[in-house]
């Protein structure tokens, strides 16, 4: 197992290099001049613009720019944006917001998704099962952007149950955006749990558990649920990485100062260093949580061995 994890971690290096280069190239290819955009209405003197271009290595060809970036990166320097703020500081400021948002979203996924899936799976084709089927179908079919605006309008503005935007009210500010961010995956988790549980209830070893005279609760929790949750845990783990990226829309709508909103603004302002830094970090999270899932998988299912 240790060797497997080490090998997987080593493999992340080329993936991160490749991903960051692709992002770098895409920002490079963006039309327009970031320095001119930075200046806005006021014209800058050509000397100042040349100086700025030189400071940010904008005159070098793509490959050279990238190599200089990686060189700095190896020294822990992710560069600075055009206002002179270090990208590492931007990340340090925005990461906690995104982490909180993702944690709330995953919490919703686990609690609501799994509970709904279990209740639906135990009584298949019952009232609750149909309710879950219909509601998850509706949730999955609505784009997250629409869902974000609608819930913000209904629960934030009209009913006043939740803060509309910002992070002033602590963890309470994260509930509504967290729910919106989780919605799609939550529906999927409920469906996955339901199907997996219903399938496992018919498994031979569940019949054995009944023949052993085990109490009903033990049969469901110990002999059905645990086996049923293996695919669910796999999905949730991989989804954490995706949620960190999916936060772009949610953070922008709810005005949360997290990495998602930051990268959205950075793209608009062609802040290459910020975009590359944050997106590469997101890629790293994605890879990391996939690795965690693979390790967890072996823990949950003893049939899986990586060595």
């Amino acid at each position: 197992m240790g060797r497997y994890v080490a090998r997987r971690l080593l493999l992340t290096i080329p993936v991160l290099l490749g991903a960051s280069f692709l992002i770098f190239a895409m920002v490079y290819a963006l039309p327009g001049d970031p320095i001119r955009a930075l200046a806005g209405e006021r014209p800058l003197s050509p000397a100042v613009m040349a100086q700025l271009r030189d400071d940010f290595n904008l005159n070098d060809p793509l490959g050279v720019q990238y190599l200089k970036y990686v060189g700095d990166l190896l020294q822990g320097d992710l560069g600075t944006d055009f206002r002179g703020r270090a990208v590492t500081e931007t990340i340090a400021r925005t990461l906690p917001v995104t982490v909180k948002l993702t944690a709330v979203a995953v919490g919703f996924e686990i609690v609501i998704g799994i509970v709904a899936g279990v209740l639906a799976g135990i009584r298949r084709n019952g009232y609750f099962d149909n309710l879950v089927l219909v509601s998850t179908t509706i949730i999955v079919s609505i784009p997250i952007l629409v869902l974000a605006f609608v819930t913000q309008f209904v629960f934030g503005l009209k009913l006043g149950w939740f803060p509309i935007a910002g992070t002033q009210e602590g963890i309470y500010s994260y509930l509504l955006p967290g729910l919106v961010l989780a919605s799609g995956s939550l529906a999927y988790v409920a469906r996955l749990t339901r199907t997996s549980l219903a399938e496992n209830l018919r498994a031979d070893y569940v019949r054995t558990a009944r023949a052993k005279g085990l109490p009903q609760r033990t049969i469901i929790v110990r002999h059905t649920l645990r086996n049923s949750l293996i695919p669910v845990v796999t999905f949730i783990g991989a989804d954490i990485g995706a949620l960190l990226g999916g936060a772009i829309v949610t953070e922008s709508v709810f005005n949360l100062p997290g990495m998602g909103r930051e990268v959205y603004n950075a793209v608009r302002q062609q802040e290459g260093a910020v975009v590359v830094g944050i997106v590469t970090l997101m890629v790293f999270f994605f890879i990391f949580f996939n690795l965690v899932v693979d390790v967890l998988y072996a823990v949950l299912d003893p049939r899986i061995r990586y060595d």
Binding site: D204, Y205, T208, A209, A211, R226, N227, D301, R303
Partner: peptide
């Protein structure tokens, strides 16, 4: 039961 592999819980 007949099939001991599927009749025992794998985990």
């Amino acid at each position: 039961f007949q099939d001991a592999l599927s009749s025992l819980n794998p985990v």
